[in-house]
Amino acid sequence: PDLGLTQLFADPNLIENLKKNPKTSEMMKDPQLVAKLIGYKQNPQAIGQDLFTDPRLMTIMATLMGVDL
């Protein structure tokens, strides 16, 4: 199971919303991170391994779920 990750990354406004959010806007200036996020739309399971190697993803996930870290 993808634990709902498919829906989190399926939002067509995902990148724009993250660019507008004060907690994630600075991160979204990294083209490699943006490319990763776009890739998760097609393969949400890929985030599982990346969560352990890129701490920014935890902040992004929390933001998408509405959790304040």
Results as ranks from 00 to 15, higher is better:
69 L>I: 14
55 P>W: 11
50 D>A: 06
68 D>F: 02
52 F>T: 13
59 T>A: 11
6 T>I: 13
35 A>H: 10
64 L>E: 02
51 L>E: 05
51 L>K: 05
39 G>D: 12
57 L>Q: 01
10 A>K: 10
59 T>S: 08
49 Q>R: 10
47 I>M: 11
39 G>A: 13
30 D>R: 01
1 P>L: 12
20 K>F: 06
3 L>K: 13
9 F>N: 02
15 I>A: 02
31 P>G: 07
65 M>K: 13
24 T>H: 05
53 T>E: 12
18 L>A: 02
3 L>N: 13
43 N>K: 03
21 N>L: 03
38 I>W: 04
30 D>H: 02
40 Y>P: 00
18 L>P: 00
34 V>G: 01
58 M>L: 14
8 L>G: 03
69 L>P: 11
9 F>K: 01
68 D>W: 01
10 A>Y: 07
57 L>S: 01
39 G>F: 12
25 S>W: 05
25 S>G: 08
69 L>S: 15
39 G>Y: 15
45 Q>M: 12
47 I>T: 04
24 T>K: 00
11 D>Y: 03
17 N>V: 11
67 V>R: 00
27 M>D: 03
10 A>R: 10
32 Q>V: 13
21 N>V: 02
14 L>W: 11
35 A>V: 03
59 T>F: 11
64 L>K: 01
17 N>L: 10
9 F>A: 02
37 L>K: 00
44 P>W: 09
68 D>P: 02
15 I>S: 01
6 T>Q: 13
30 D>I: 01
27 M>I: 12
56 R>Q: 10
65 M>S: 10
55 P>V: 13
31 P>A: 09
46 A>I: 09
60 I>A: 02
22 P>E: 11
24 T>W: 03
66 G>M: 11
9 F>V: 03
68 D>I: 03
46 A>V: 08
63 T>D: 03
11 D>L: 04
22 P>H: 07
30 D>Y: 01
36 K>L: 12
33 L>E: 00
24 T>I: 06
62 A>M: 09
48 G>T: 15
23 K>T: 08
53 T>M: 11
49 Q>N: 10
59 T>P: 03
20 K>D: 10
34 V>S: 03
23 K>I: 09
40 Y>W: 09
48 G>F: 15
42 Q>G: 12
15 I>Q: 02
9 F>M: 08
42 Q>A: 13
6 T>A: 15
18 L>E: 00
41 K>H: 11
35 A>W: 05
12 P>Q: 06
41 K>T: 14
14 L>M: 14
43 N>R: 06
54 D>G: 01
53 T>W: 10
32 Q>Y: 12
59 T>C: 06
69 L>Q: 15
61 M>E: 01
54 D>F: 02
8 L>D: 02
9 F>S: 01
59 T>M: 08
10 A>P: 02
49 Q>P: 13
16 E>T: 06
62 A>Q: 11
31 P>I: 07
10 A>G: 10
12 P>A: 10
57 L>T: 03
51 L>T: 06
66 G>F: 08
33 L>M: 03
67 V>P: 15
30 D>A: 02
28 M>H: 00
27 M>G: 01
65 M>R: 12
47 I>K: 01
35 A>L: 13
27 M>Q: 03
34 V>D: 00
7 Q>F: 05
16 E>N: 13
8 L>H: 08
2 D>A: 14
68 D>G: 04
61 M>V: 15
67 V>F: 13
35 A>N: 08
18 L>R: 00
15 I>N: 01
23 K>V: 12
43 N>C: 05
20 K>W: 07
48 G>S: 12
31 P>F: 05
33 L>Q: 01
62 A>K: 10
10 A>D: 12
16 E>Q: 10
54 D>M: 01
